[in-house]
Amino acid sequence: MDENLHIALIQSHLNWENPVANRISFSEKLTQITSAIDLIVLPEMFTTGFTMQPQNIYEDEGLKTLQWMQDLAKEKNAALTGSLVFQENDNFFNRLFFVFPNGTYCTYDKKHTFTLAGEHEVYQSGIEKLMVEYKGFKICPLICYDLRFPVWARNTEDYDVLLYVANWPKLRVNAWDALLKARAIENMSYCIGVNRIGIDGLGHEYVGHSAVYNVLGEQVAYSEKEEIVYARLSKGHIEKTRNKLKFLNDRDAFNWQ
């Protein structure tokens, strides 16, 4: 069994509040992936940009995007993840889907809605972390603003990979860089951050800085332009480092009940 997880991070411009155009755009980008990849990661709200007007999006677009993700996951024989505007029971969610190659999926609703932009007034907040078991790796996917809250991300579940999808603006990108590295070090896990680039419909600028950090906080992948970023995660690196440096044995145990 391959003890590596091969990943592709799609750092891209997003078409404002236009799911159809974004699905077409990402479909075209994914044709560039010709090597064997296990996991493809898209940004936060990858079909719309970080909109606070989800009522502008047709209600069925969420299900259409989910079907699109399922079709692509099967076609690429790879898992696919990213978050999108999703409407359910008259409520809106910033919902991450993790779609497996066979089309099955699990979800995570963003816990920390971004109050500075009024996200808490528009989208329902999630209440549970998600742990994904995939190809021998335990993955914890979170969303953007969650990055600022280390207790929520604390590695009490012995996960191997902490993954953030984001629309993190240029204005505060130094925090993005620092916190991704910190989350890797303190949790002794790989930490992946996938951001967008370009200017959104509200004039906010994004400069990417999508990156992968290993268990020691060393940067193993990074980009500031529109491209697909590839990385290989090693199970051996995780086990070797944790066996040598048993810092997780001294971690605090948090009870969310």
Rank of each mutant, 00 (worst) to 15 (best):
F114L: 01
D160W: 03
T107A: 10
L162I: 10
L66G: 02
V161H: 02
I127P: 12
F92V: 04
T241V: 06
Q70N: 11
E119P: 06
L9A: 01
Q67D: 10
P141K: 11
E224N: 06
T51E: 02
I199T: 11
R148E: 12
F26P: 02
E61V: 04
K74N: 12
L163H: 07
Q219H: 07
I7F: 06
S27T: 12
K225A: 10
S83W: 00
Q87G: 01
E119A: 07
H204P: 09
E75L: 13
S189V: 08
Y145P: 06
I185G: 01
V220L: 00
D250K: 05
W176D: 08
Q32G: 14
V207Y: 07
M45T: 04
N255V: 09
W168C: 09
I40D: 00
E218S: 00
V215A: 00
V132K: 04
N187D: 14
M1K: 10
V41A: 05
N155I: 04
L80D: 03
W176G: 04
A78F: 02
Q55K: 14
I40V: 07
N187V: 07
C140N: 08
K64Y: 11
G198F: 03
G236P: 15
K129L: 12
D200E: 07
L9I: 04
E75Q: 14
N249A: 15
F137W: 01
W152A: 07
E186Y: 05
P150E: 15
F149H: 14
P43Y: 01
P150L: 13
I40P: 03
V229T: 06
F137Q: 07
K110F: 09
R196H: 12
D146Q: 06
V41N: 01
A182V: 09
W152Q: 08
A175L: 14
N18H: 12
R242T: 09
E121I: 05
Q70C: 11
A153L: 13
G203F: 08
N255H: 13
P169T: 13
M45S: 02
Y230F: 06
N89F: 11
R242H: 13
L84K: 08
F92I: 05
L163A: 10
Y145W: 15
N77Y: 08
V173T: 13
D250G: 12
F86W: 00
V20M: 11
Y230L: 10
F98W: 09
N102S: 09
H6L: 06
E61K: 10
A182F: 10
A73L: 06
Q70S: 01
C140P: 10
R232P: 05
N167M: 06
V41D: 02
F46G: 01
